[in-house]
């Protein structure tokens, strides 16, 4: 095939790819641009795309007026906390399922996944009432527990698929070498599974960060993460677009960066291995 021909083709597909990519990415880009406008410029028609007085004052106002840092801290604590508790439960479970499977291991794994498919409205009312009676509403501990339970099946599942790739003979060798189960996991399994564990943490931090059913229903301020913070901008007046944009940019920027790193794991984690 002639090189010139494929070069032309490559140029066309490149243009198409970039066009489509920019269209899909545009809302995020537009949000970021708006966050640097004044409120007046933000609602101005015709809109200004690049040539306006770039200002960072919205970011300052967002922090002053609605205490962005508290919500951001909560988001970090809830997503990291729930993921770490999840690892503590999931690593031994995934070890057992991958290296000492029994007759019912597969059923157990599938059952765990199926708990993930329960619609939250089926559990909302009792959980809400239990939390109210146990004074867990609006507490970080309560939210960490909910997010942990929500994501535990995915954490177990992902670790299981990663552990599966480690040959069992290596763990048996450690056993022959006199390692106890604890040392087998700490000295041999965990170091070998570091990349898998890291991907698992990454994806679950993202999922917990963006969780917007339980956080909206069980928290208001003290333990509320950024999802709730942003929802407070839903008041109908259109005067806060620049601040909304600044707050939103702050809320999604860290997770967008993490997300871009984890795109490969995303497929594995969210399809439960059904697509390879």
């Amino acid at each position: 095939m002639a090189r010139a021909h494929s070069l032309r083709r490559r140029t066309i597909t490149t243009a198409a790819c970039w066009l489509v990519g920019l269209v899909i990415f545009f809302p995020i880009l537009w949000m970021a641009v708006t966050s640097f406008k004044t409120e007046l410029e933000a609602v101005e028609i015709p809109p200004k795309f690049l040539f306006f007085d770039w200002t960072t004052e919205n970011y300052g106002v967002v922090q002053e007026r609605s205490n962005y840092l508290l919500f951001a801290t909560n988001s970090i604590l809830l997503s990291l906390g729930s993921t770490l508790v999840g690892l503590l439960f999931a690593i031994p479970a995934a070890w057992a399922m991958a290296f000492a499977p029994g007759k019912r291991t597969k059923d157990l794994l599938l059952w765990m996944l199926s708990t993930k498919m329960m619609p939250p409205v089926g559990a909302l009312i009792p959980i809400y009432l239990l939390f109210r009676d146990l004074h867990l509403l609006n507490t970080r501990g309560g939210m960490i527990a909910v997010l942990f339970l929500l994501n535990l099946p995915i954490i177990i599942w992902m670790l299981f698929t990663y552990f599966k790739e480690i040959p069992g003979e290596i763990l048996e060798a450690a056993r022959m070498d006199g390692a106890t189960l604890w040392r087998e996991i700490v000295y041999v399994l965990a170091p070998m599974a570091v990349p898998g564990i890291a991907s698992t943490v990454l994806l679950n931090v993202i999922l917990a960060w963006n969780e917007a059913f339980w956080t909206l229903n069980l928290t208001t301020t003290d333990a509320a993460p950024l999802t709730v913070f942003i929802a407070s901008y839903s008041s109908p007046e259109g005067l806060f677009w620049a601040k909304l944009s600044a707050a939103s940019t702050l809320a999604i920027a860290p997770i967008l960066v993490l997300g871009w790193f984890s795109q490969k794991q995303l497929v594995r984690g969210l399809t439960f291995g059904a697509v390879k």
Binding site: C17, W18, V20, G21, L22, I24, F25, P27, I28, W30, M31, T34, I206, W209, N210, A212, L216, L226, T227, V228, I230, A231, Y233, S234, G238, W241, L244, S245, S248, A251, I252, I255, L256, L258, G259, W260, Q263, L266
Partner: peptide, 24 residues
Amino acid sequence: VRLMVIAPFFVMPTVSALIWKNLL
């Protein structure tokens, strides 16, 4: 391009809803 296409998935639901509703 891939990164740009994937990005919306990482945007929290409250953000995407409000940005679309207001800005767009």
